[in-house]
């Protein structure tokens, strides 16, 4: 297996505070990797550095063999990394269909000329329409295509976010705490869904708080504590790791 994403001695400092300190790990093609750690461990910072929302202070990020350190979010997305947001970020005042189409648009691109003269870009338009409908079907949102996204239930909005990210047809999907705010049944359904996506061949990096879910679905787990990497291995291995136990017990709530 080759690495799709490589994180090499990544550091990010905030006013002298080392939020992330020389963290290195990789995500292999087709793998579902969990990134966990107690509050303030630096998970979200690592996530944002990959997504391009934050620029790393030091270190390097490589995606598909090419350097992406410090790339802007839109550039990262165009290379094939899609993300979801921790606190729901659907576009509330446009329809579910239009929301999902934005992901597809990000992939296929749109141009001013194409909007004016549709025959110039028939292929592109069809691709957008196809990946939008595919994503809608897959998440059972087709029935709500015409609804304003703001009127969906919380769980449906979560699905919508993932559908929109998948419409980008990414090589790597970054999920930022997808289970936050979901009840037991919904979390269960989400776990099945994430696993299905992985089984369909998608590479996924999952940042999550819900330990049982991470333990169950991930192929490999990376653990951060106070900005440093303390463990990287299979779920069983990580569960048995003394440093991990210490970190979680110390934090314990």
């Amino acid at each position: 297996m080759s690495s799709l994403l490589e994180i090499d001695r990544l550091s990010r400092h905030f006013h002298g505070l080392r939020a992330v300190d020389e963290v290195s790990f990789g995500v292999n093609r087709g793998e579902l990797v969990g990134l966990i750690g107690p509050n303030g461990a630096g998970k979200t910072t690592v996530f944002n550095c990959i997504a391009g929302t934050l620029a790393p202070t030091l270190g390097e990020l490589r995606f598909d063999g090419a350097r992406i350190t410090g790339f802007a979010p839109e550039r990262v997305a165009a290379l094939g990394i899609a993300r979801t947001f921790q606190n729901l970020r659907v576009f509330p005042d446009i329809t579910v269909y239009d929301n999902v189409s934005v992901g597809a648009i990000g992939r296929a691109g749109v141009s001013f000329a194409g909007a004016l003269l549709p025959f110039l870009e028939r292929g592109r338009t069809r691709r957008i329409a196809d990946s939008t409908s595919t994503a809608l079907e897959r998440f059972g949102l087709a029935a709500h295509a015409g609804t304003l996204a703001g009127n969906l239930s919380y769980g449906q909005k979560k699905l919508l976010e993932i559908a929109r990210a998948l419409a980008l047809e990414p090589k790597l999907l970054l999920l930022d705490e997808p289970a936050a705010g979901l009840n037991g049944n919904e979390t269960e359904a989400l776990a099945v869904l994430v696993r299905d996506l992985r089984d369909a061949g998608l590479t996924i990096l999952l940042v999550e708080h819900d330990m049982p879910m991470v333990m169950r679905v991930c192929d490999r787990i990376v653990v951060l504590d106070s900005g440093r990497l303390i463990a990287d291995g299979a779920p069983a291995q990580v569960r048995a790791d003394a440093a991990v136990r210490a970190a979680y017990l110390g934090d314990d709530s």
């Binding site: 979010p73 839109e74 947001f85 970020r89 005042d93 934005v102 992901g103 648009i105």
Partner: peptide, 10 residues
């Protein structure tokens, strides 16, 4: 609607 989110979509 959401500039950051639009950027994340490329």
């Amino acid at each position: 609607e959401d500039e950051d989110c639009a950027r994340a979509m490329g």
